[in-house]
Design a protein around this nucleic acid. Structure first.
Length: 881
RNA sequence: GCGGGCGUGGCGGAACGGUAGACGCGAAGGUCUCAAACACCUUUGUCCAAAAGACGUGUGGGUUCGAGUCCCACCGCCCGCACCA
């Protein structure tokens, strides 16, 4: 057969198989009590308008799991939806006009059109967007249930305020302390906002992490640290010369053992005392205002230079009333943590040390390394709490003890003297969900002059966003929409105003996984559906969600359970979690005549490897304008670097660096299977993978080789036997075993390596037609999760029954996996010097005898007896001289 | 600043504490071709002409018969830090 008529043509075959799957309803999820269920979920996308390679990688991984589980007989749920609320839609409306809904739904349409050609085994009948009123209406219903259950409340909280645009800014909209649009200095301002009482679950959310065995250890650690349980002492200092009402300052410390090393007290600029003082003291007012300009992120506060303002107030030390400590307002004290006030022990905290040095405060050491003398410190001495140290200013417990022991002893001592209480605190703060924006789920309450805050009646849900809004003025359009904003009080019928804050988009994504089990239901969830489908058996997404999204979802599952929307088994909604790495690409950069960087798209350069192995990127535009060929360029000016771009090693794909590879282009050129195979092949899934055009081309070639191999095998005789049959069958079972195990353990790069190995064996095998056919059909089955279209093609070519997508997963025969001999390396003093082949069931003694008789071993022994011989059966022999 | 992660050939990466470099890319040589492309075959960590050998997993120490893997210290890069999603 010539290459003319028979070729691997994904552009033709891929749509064909997608239609076949759709016609057969392969991916429609059904509750089937007779079968075990499997729920695979990839973190749903934000509809930005285009899919990127990260999506391809994420969804391909989920698809491998979904298709494998389906083949293994599970009833699979593999849904897809859209995390559709958020600021970009509003930004687009501001910049380009139009309406956020129009922008969002259009993006969804485009992105879905780009995703469909990937051939993912998604049940599209369950699709929804979080901006659908049907979805957010149910979310509002749950909000009301949470409100009734006491899981939501209002309190004042700090926001970034842009005084020119008169609007609240997100952290990412604050650049160097200035508003991104107005350029005005951003202020911290307090607003009354809605909060979820997530902190009520701190202890439980922390304790339950230990049960999340199939989560990555790093995510569990990050969550633990985020919740941040600490044990400490809360007590108050009595003040001297403080204003009325501030006779005491309550502080919290995790190191009460350092109380005798205290040298100052510091309160947050947002502390009631600081706020009181600023009303009467312009210096303090100016200092506090300065602090508030730093912003609201913890990062900014931590990185800012540590500064304080001496209030002139002092406090008495609890164990020595003659000892007075100055009270500062300090920019690094968070009002949200502890009591918003601390005592500083500069000897044993670097921040306090820097502060004390700056303000010339004493630095008395409380403890020193065992056996050392008390001496002046050049920096804070901060040993691990588990280390034994010698206390020179301790007041409780032994003189030499660990920090942990000393803390407990100090708490006991203080409590017995009536100085404070031992308390457990958490770093985790309540979740502020209010957003002063339009494009989010409206908070379904009204503010009535007579009744106060009144929940909307459930029969009036959803509280829909008004469509007639404009974004030509700063601020939230809901605030200035009179017919939407003004309403009747659900309780008294009097004049009332709707809440104009909308919900954080994290709320939308905190329960979508539950909604997928019954996406069209008229209640948030349906008992039978959540009972059958929950939990998510495998959740897959980016590590950037390791803390907030996952923690919020864990909280939501508990809150939903408490309000009757989820069964108890679903309070940890994700049984297994996998966090995948990014897709990166190298950057092509040159410089313009003013020495500014200019970035070039991958398709605008030709990559060439020079003889010395150096890679260069030649600018296509340069070749065209000079009328040159690549060869001319290589001969002439390449060495000079003219018309070439520097290759900067891989970086996260971003539009500004122009290193984005568009999946749509790749699919058009090579087909979806090439894109799918490549994103799985090179790197372990949890690590970043670098997209390279050479790799994509090589993948495509390999897939074409498999196609051609299948075609060759299809033409082989129907009957007969050949000497290589047994070897090929062994290789086949090894491949089944390896691919099955590596898919199970999320090592898809190794699955692909095993498929390469098996394909290489298969193409060189000296086996008969029937065995070859059997092997290549198995190859199709093993490849199907990764490259389902090609697998169908091969399956059909070999006369496979029905669709390979519907075929059951092959099982390796253990008897075919063992061999009768084994090759062992022999080390001499830990260095490999020889190898021997012995029977797989040889005894240690036999192996030792054979090893010691080996030529190389005899040469090294030179007649002497070995000191020791270590035989690890099946692995290695080590002879120690 | 705090928290978390990652460092292995020219490149992506393999390796229950047991033969470092599986598999793929790239490169070199060959077959085919008028020639090229494609395809196929062989080689490919570094040093040495080759053999033998030596050296090799970011750096420096340590534990072990044996360390990429475990421990300590350091260096570099990446991610998160509560209103981006």
């Amino acid at each position: 057969m010539t290459g003319e008529t028979a070729r691997y043509q994904p552009q033709i075959t891929e749509p064909k198989w997608q239609e076949a799957w759709e016609a057969a309803g392969c991916f429609t999820a059904r509750r089937d009590p007779a079968r075990p269920k499997y729920y695979v979920l990839e973190m749903f996308p934000y509809p930005s308008g285009r899919i990127h390679m990260g999506h391809v990688r994420n969804y391909t991984m989920g698809d491998v799991v979904a298709r494998t589980r389906k083949a293994q007989g599970y009833s699979v749920l593999h849904p897809m939806g859209w995390d559709a609320f958020g600021m970009p839609a509003e930004n687009a409306a501001m910049q380009e006009g139009g309406h956020p809904a129009e922008w969002t739904y259009n993006n969804i349409k485009v992105m879905k059109g780009q995703m469909k050609p990937l051939g993912l085994s998604i049940d599209w009948s369950r699709e929804f967007a979080t901006c659908d009123p049907e979805y957010y209406g149910q979310q509002q219903a749950m909000f009301l249930d949470f409100l009734e259950a006491g899981l939501v409340y209002r309190k004042a909280a700090v926001v970034n305020w842009d005084p020119v645009d008169m609007t609240v800014l997100a952290n990412e909209q604050v650049i160097d302390g200035k508003g991104w649009r107005s350029g005005a200095e951003v202020e911290r301002r307090e607003l009354t906002q809605w909060f979820f009482r997530i902190s009520e679950f701190s202890e439980e959310l922390l304790a339950a992490i230990d049960g999340l065995e199939n989560w990555p250890e790093k995510v569990r650690l990050m969550q633990k640290n985020w919740i941040g349980r600490s044990r400490g002492l809360q007590f108050s200092f009595s003040t001297v010369d403080a204003p009325e009402g501030f006779e005491r300052i309550e502080v919290y410390t995790t190191r009460p053992d350092t109380l005798m090393g205290a040298s100052f007290v510091a309160v947050s600029p947002d502390h009631p005392l600081a706020k009181h003082l600023e009303r009467h003291d312009t210096g303090i007012a100016a200092f506090n205002a300065e602090c508030r300009r730093i912003g609201t992120t913890e990062e900014a506060l931590e990185k800012a230079e540590k500064r304080g303002f001496d209030t002139g107030i002092t406090v008495r030390h609890p164990f020595d009333t003659a000892w007075e400590l100055p009270v500062y307002i300090a920019n690094f004290i968070l009002m949200d943590y502890g009591t918003g006030a601390i005592f500083g022990c500069p000897a044993h905290d670097q921040r306090d040390f820097d502060f004390a040095t700056k303000y010339d405060l004493p630095i008395p050491a409380v403890f020193v390394p065992e056996g050392e003398e008390d001496a002046a410190l050049a920096e804070a001495y901060v040993p691990p709490k588990s280390e034994r140290v010698q206390y020179v200013r301790g007041f409780a417990g032994e003189e030499v003890q660990t920090g942990e022991e000393a803390v407990e002893a100090a708490i006991d001592f203080c409590q017995s003297r009536g100085v404070g209480q031992g308390v457990t605190k958490f770093r985790l703060r309540d979740w502020g969900l209010s957003r002063q924006r339009y494009w989010g789920c409206p908070i379904p309450v009204v503010h009535c002059d007579a009744c106060g805050v009144v929940p909307e009646k459930k029969e009036n849900l959803p509280v829909e966003l008004p469509k007639d809004v404009s974004f030509d003025q700063p601020g939230n359009p809901l605030d200035r929409h009179p017919t939407w904003r003004d309403c009747a009080c659900p309780r008294c019928g009097g004049k009332a105003r709707r809440e104009t804050d909308t919900m954080d988009t994290f709320v939308d994504s905190s329960w979508y996984f539950a909604r997928f089990t019954a996406p069209r239901a008229e209640t948030p969830t349906v008992a039978e559906d959540v009972a059958y489908w929950m939990n998510v058996d495998q959740y897959i997404g980016g590590v950037e969600h390791a803390i907030l999204h996952l923690l919020y979802s864990r909280f939501f599952a508990r809150a939903m359970h408490r309000t009757g929307h989820l069964p108890a088994k679903a309070i940890e909604p994700f049984d297994a979690l996998f966090t995948q790495g990014m897709v990166t690409h190298e950057i092509y950069m040159s410089w313009d005549d003013r020495e500014r960087p200019v970035y070039h798209l991958p398709e605008d350069v030709i990559l060439h490897t020079m003889v010395d192995g150096k890679r260069v990127a030649v600018l296509k535009a340069q070749l065209v304008s000079n009328g040159e060929t690549l060869e001319d360029r290589i001969d002439n000016t390449l060495a000079l670097g003219i018309g070439t771009a520097e290759i900067v090693p891989s970086a996260k794909m971003s539009k500004s660096k122009k290193n984005v590879v568009d999946p749509v282009d790749i699919i058009a050129r090579f087909g979806a299977d090439t894109a799918r195979w490549f994103v799985l092949s090179d790197s372990p899934p949890e690590r970043d993978v670098e997209w390279t055009s050479a790799g994509a081309e090589a993948t495509h070639k390999h897939l074409a080789r498999v196609w051609a191999l299948s075609e060759r095998i299809a033409a082989m005789p129907e009957a007969g036997a050949a000497p290589g049959d047994a070897d090929l069958l062994r290789a086949m079972h090894r491949a089944i075993d390896e691919v099955s195990r590596t898919i199970e353990s999320f090592a898809f790069n190794k699955s692909i390596a095993a498929l390469y190995t098996f394909t290489n064996v298969l193409s060189k095998a000296d086996a008969s037609g029937p065995v070859m056919r059997r092997a290549v059909r198995t190859l199709a089955q093993l490849m199907a999760p990764m490259v389902p279209h090609l697998a169908e093609e091969v399956w059909a070519m070999q006369g496979g029954e029905g669709l390979v997508t519907e075929a059951s997963w092959p099982v390796a025969d253990p008897a075919m996996l063992v061999s009768d001999t084994v090759t062992l390396p022999i080390q001499i003093n830990g260095k490999r010097r020889a190898e021997i082949t012995v029977a797989a069931d040889a005894t240690k003694e036999d192996v030792e005898k054979i090893a010691l008789a080996d030529d190389a071993v005899l040469r090294f022994l030179a007649g002497a007896a070995p000191k020791k011989v270590i035989v690890v059966p099946g692995r290695i022999v080590n002879v120690v001289l």
